[in-house]
Design a protein around this nucleic acid. Structure first.
Lengths: 121, 121
DNA sequence: TCAATAGTTCAACAGACCTTGAACTAAGGA
DNA sequence: TCCTTAGTTCAAGGTCTGTTGAACTATTGA
């Protein structure tokens, strides 16, 4: 487990990278669920997403989301706690995340977006 | 030149396909320029975009944009006239296109988005 | 009719992407 | 200390993408 988790600064977040992240069904499902539960439980753990894919595949997608600046990860014990970088995204691309999330919510069934069950934080 | 140009209906336009289109620099530049000039000249032609890439590569990207539902193409003589499907996109994904275009405009320099010169329509 | 113009289609290639399983590391609990 | 849990990393694979040039088709104008 690497000690250092690379995050871009707010200014380094790029539009194409964000769009690319949100065009993948698994990553969209991750962001969708992060957004859906962010008020209730705050941060989520990798294990909360095992319903979406296998561990190593999720690690791959988490790294993409983190490196593109969509989410922030901090290590607590053996766990990784993740949350959306809402304010940074809103600052760089006003209205974008909300528009995507609203459309995803409307199309949730068609997109087969799973709503996951989360453990206590 | 095939006679039939396939367009999805409004309802068939899918969020991941749209996001994927907008995550490619060339396609973003096409949409950006279509939006920038849509009020002035209405429709644009393939040749207007030769500054972005070669003919055959553009044809590839135009097909992607058309098949994902971002733009509409009609044949007039040997030309293809293209325009953004603004209303359809707004109906399916409210606020999304405007948010993307506003962010693209703000980041135009960083994204190296070229502003093309257009011929008369 | 012939040549020029506008754009498409095809084959080929390199590179990127997603997925998988196995091996690994690090922290916590018994 | 040893086992378990949580997550990462690596190598390998198949597939999808973007790009190119050459060949093609269709339309217009002379």
């Amino acid at each position: 487990m690497s000690r250092i988790l690379l995050h871009p600064t707010r200014e380094q977040i790029e539009l194409p990278g964000v769009m690319d992240c949100l065009s993948d069904p698994i990553r969209l499902a991750i962001v969708y669920n992060l957004a859906k539960r962010e008020k209730e439980v705050g941060e989520l753990r990798c294990g909360d997403f095992y319903g979406l894919s296998g561990k190593s595949n999720l690690a791959y997608h988490f790294a993409k989301l983190r490196e593109a600046g969509l989410m922030e990860t901090r290590a607590v014990g053996t766990a990784r706690l993740m949350k959306l970088r809402r304010e940074d995204l809103e600052s760089r691309f006003p209205g974008l995340l909300d528009a995507v999330l609203a459309s995803a919510e409307r199309d949730a069934e068609r997109l087969q977006l799973p709503v996951l069950e989360f453990t206590e934080a």
